[in-house]
Write a protein that binds this DNA or RNA. Structure first.
Length: 423
DNA sequence: TCTGGGGTCCTAGGACCC
DNA sequence: TCTGGGGTCCTAGGACCC
């Protein structure tokens, strides 16, 4: 049997910050309250967060800036370059507040967390939700919404309702079977967590339009035409928990640093410097989780919106696996040399680390003398403590990371270097 | 003129093996 | 007309999420 088939008795809450990045900008600039606010992606390319007022103007998620730029003049839209240092810091404050209610939380993304409510002795779930909401607002100034339900997928549904249905005022409890069914009937199948555009289209073609219809659909057809993941989603809609709370942050299996450049790069030395910067950032994150990388991918790309598009990627093996930045940079440069064609203007590049082993595992650094290894480790620790204020020599050539960020707000909460325009 | 970044997982298909 | 079959491993590409 694939799954335990009895309905779940657990209770989960999904806490989600409302329009997170836009709310963070408002926090330090109250004059933005009530006005449409949009936060842009790197290079000020497209919208990645919108206040409710901005959504009401029809500015879509991921919509390119140039398409709605005119609304700045006509509708008074306030626009900001992404300030990930600020958002990361605010996220940590929100999560710390949630952890005061229970240590059993799963930080799912920068602005979302699942809380296990079992063992808390909650009698009135609605009142509990309101308490969490009030407390987070008081501690951080950020508005959140809560959805309470028996499974993660239903908690997502409840959270959606908490945001969209005014009478819920940010808290929706969905524990009763009849209430679940009624709610699912009002939700388009494409809005269900785990059902993307492609699966929604297939389901619509089968006559499945709502989450309720998906809940009642044929398991065998789901398994045959979609995937086991989608079948899990269907079970979760039925109140049968297939996805557990993952309290410990899982080890990443790959770590990538990639950027689209604000201005295209023609000079191979500059491209190399940028790739070295990406390597240093990925390596820092790698050491942060105590891993060493056994593999690396480097890729480059010209603008896909121009003729003579060129994209290429190459893999290399690190033997033994390492987290030592100079060794990783050396590999990155060798790989880049194999795919970088002179004369082209590059718009995007990236470094992906993979094939991780624990940094202290046997085999990691097997061929380095122990004294050498220890020296390298101490050096990297010292570098990481300096928190981005150190530049590797080859990075310096890159003059930052070639990002355009015309409208970034101040670093209200961070001492991070102004030079490194990354999260 | 101007279109993000960082992840995970599944599936299909080929190579290879017995 | 013709075909063994089943297993594993790897990779590329797709789909999805925030």
């Amino acid at each position: 049997m694939l799954f335990e088939l009895s309905p779940s008795r657990q209770t989960l809450a999904l806490v989600d910050c409302n329009n997170f990045y836009a709310s963070c900008e408002r926090l330090f600039n109250p004059s933005l309250n009530g006005k449409p606010v949009v936060v842009l992606s790197n290079n000020d390319g497209c919208a990645i967060a919108r206040s409710n007022e901005a959504k009401a103007l029809g500015i879509g998620m991921g919509e390119p800036y140039f398409k709605w730029k005119h609304l700045i003049e006509t509708q008074g839209v306030k626009v900001f370059s992404a300030n990930f240092a600020l958002y990361g810091d605010m996220s940590r404050r929100v999560m710390a507040t949630l952890q005061q209610f229970t240590p059993n939380i799963e930080i799912y993304s920068i602005d979302e967390a699942f809380m296990s409510l079992d063992d808390l002795g909650i009698v009135d779930h609605e009142a509990f939700g309101r308490d969490v909401r009030r407390t987070v607002l008081r501690h951080t100034g950020l508005p959140v919404s809560l959805g309470l339900a028996r499974t993660k997928t239903l908690a997502k549904v409840a959270n959606h309702a908490a945001k969209k249905v005014p009478r819920h005022q940010g808290v929706c409890v969905l524990l009763d079977d009849a209430a679940v069914r009624a709610r699912l009937a009002s939700i388009p199948v494409g809005d269900v967590w785990g059902v993307g555009r492609r699966k929604a289209k297939w389901l619509n073609d089968q006559g499945i339009l709502t989450a309720e219809a998906l809940m009642d659909f044929d398991d065998r057809l789901i398994r045959k035409h979609l995937s086991v993941m989608t079948l899990r989603t269907v079970f979760e809609l039925r109140g049968i928990a297939c996805l557990g709370l993952e309290a410990a942050a899982p080890f990443k299996k790959s770590i990538a640093t990639t950027r689209t450049f604000g201005d295209e790069i023609r000079d191979p030395a500059e491209l190399e410097a940028a790739v070295c910067s990406f390597t240093a950032l990925s390596a820092e994150s790698l050491r942060g989780q105590g891993s060493a990388a056994g593999g690396m991918q480097v890729f480059v790309e010209t603008s896909p919106f121009k003729p003579d598009y060129y994209a290429n990627a190459v893999f290399g093996d690190m033997c033994p696996p390492t987290s030592f930045t100079p060794a990783l940079m050396g590999m990155a440069r060798r790989l880049l040399a194999r795919i970088c064609r002179p004369g082209l203007s590059y718009k995007r590049a990236g470094v992906v680390l993979m094939g991780f082993v624990r940094a202290d595992a046997e085999g990691a650094g097997l061929y380095e003398a122990p004294a050498q290894q220890e020296k390298q480790g101490r050096l990297m620790e010292a570098v990481d403590r300096l928190d981005g204020d150190v530049f590797w020599a080859r990075e310096q050539l890159s003059d930052g990371l070639h990002l355009k960020q015309a409208r970034r707000s101040g670093r209200f909460t961070s001492r991070w270097s102004e030079l490194l325009q990354v999260c």
